[in-house]
Amino acid sequence: MISFASFPVPSQNETQGMTRHHPDVEDDIDMDEGFEEGFHRLTSPGEPLTSSQAFMRGHGTYIDNDEVISSVAGTVERVNKLISVRAVRSRYNPEVGDLVVGRITEVQPRRWKVDANSRQDAVLMLSSVNLPGGVQRRKLESDELQMRTFFEEGDLLVAEVQAFFADGAMSLHTRSLRYGKLRNGQLVTVPPALIRRLKSHFLSLPCGVDLILGLNGYIWASKHVKQSEQEGEEAFDAEAVYSNKNDDIDDATRLAISRVSNIIRILAAHFIPLTDTLLLDAYEWAVEQEGDVKDLLQADIGDAMIATIAARD
């Protein structure tokens, strides 16, 4: 037997104490708190953000005593009614199509484990790399036995995020001729938040230095390679692509690579997002100083460079 129970209708006095919000109604929203659409400001852990019940809490926040409070140090962001805080320093959060620079940490059957500055190691499958004999060639058992001739522990590579596994690990691929093992340069690590999503993350500076801006915060600075040497199926040379030996680099190029790397470290220390124009201005200023490359890392010189660049902007 089914019985129905009726609930008492709230009285008028009780309904007056209840707060209801319609998506199109801005009830008691304090817009003077600095949460206009698209507004960004810095906050610290434990700082109250808003007490308005019209907002929803997002990542990096929690609610205490009807207040939305920041749980991390970062930038406050608002999207419609959602308030969130993007942490200043956090692990890289990958997306499909991202360009990343990583380091091989382990060689496993038919796959490599790659440190990509994320929450867990990425995976590069043997079927997702270019091998001698053509891009579309099937991977054989002989290829699996020679995996360390292609990538071994400690090798650096640039790849693209292809997909994600069930456990959240990202799957990489190096099928493009612009991807693969990295040589003739050095690695610079910066917070991932400083790398913006650009149309191209391969930059060629006039000083003869090529930059690969990995969205995971790993930047590769190397000597310039002509565009014709990077593209074209006919130019695919397995020995050169998977070689562990660097090319001959003249002293001027070595100085340029070191100078660009130190400039990136200075900009990262001041938490300034990296752009090609900013790097060019900083490089021109560093050349005008006519000092040693290592002197750029001194605090006073770094502060002077940042002040000069800021004045130009």
Rank of each mutant, 00 (worst) to 15 (best):
S171P: 12
R138H: 03
E152D: 11
R110C: 03
V161S: 12
N130H: 13
D155T: 08
R138Y: 03
L177R: 08
R137M: 14
V107E: 07
L140K: 09
Q136Y: 11
S176Q: 06
I104E: 11
V161G: 03
V114R: 00
S142E: 08
L140E: 13
V101A: 04
S142H: 02
S127Q: 07
G180P: 04
G102F: 02
S171R: 10
L157D: 14
H173Y: 04
G168T: 11
Q146I: 08
Q162Y: 02
F150H: 00
F150K: 00
S128T: 12
V101Y: 15
T174C: 12
M170C: 13
G168S: 09
S128E: 10
E153Q: 08
K113T: 14
Q120D: 07
V101I: 13
L131C: 05
L124K: 06
V158S: 06
F165S: 14
V129P: 00
G180N: 02
E153P: 00
L126M: 06
G133C: 08
R175P: 07
Q136G: 10
S176D: 09
F151V: 01
M125A: 15
E141R: 01
V135N: 12
G134H: 08
R137I: 15
A116G: 05
Q108T: 15
M170R: 09
M147G: 04
V158T: 07
L172T: 09
Q146D: 13
V107A: 01
P132L: 10
F165K: 14
I104V: 15
L131A: 13
M147C: 05
A159T: 01
G168W: 05
G133H: 12
V101L: 15
L140V: 02
R148H: 05
L145W: 02
K139A: 09
Q108P: 02
F164G: 07
K113P: 10
T174Y: 13
Y179R: 07
S118I: 11
A122L: 07
F164V: 04
S128M: 04
V129T: 09
D143S: 08
N130D: 13
V114D: 10
A166K: 09
D115F: 05
F164C: 10
Y179F: 13
R175N: 09
S127V: 09
L126A: 13
V129K: 00
F164N: 10
S171K: 07
N130A: 10
A166R: 11
R111E: 11
A166Q: 09
S176I: 07
P109A: 11
V114Q: 05
F164W: 15
T105K: 01
D155P: 03
R178T: 10
S128K: 08
E141A: 03
R110V: 13
L156M: 15
Q162C: 04
K113M: 12
T174G: 05
L156T: 12
G133F: 04
E106P: 02
Q120H: 01
R110M: 11
V101G: 12
V107G: 01
F164A: 03
F151K: 00
K181H: 08
M147L: 07
S118Q: 10
Q162M: 00
I104G: 07
H173G: 04
V114I: 01
K139Q: 08
L145Y: 00
F165G: 08
P109R: 11
V114G: 06
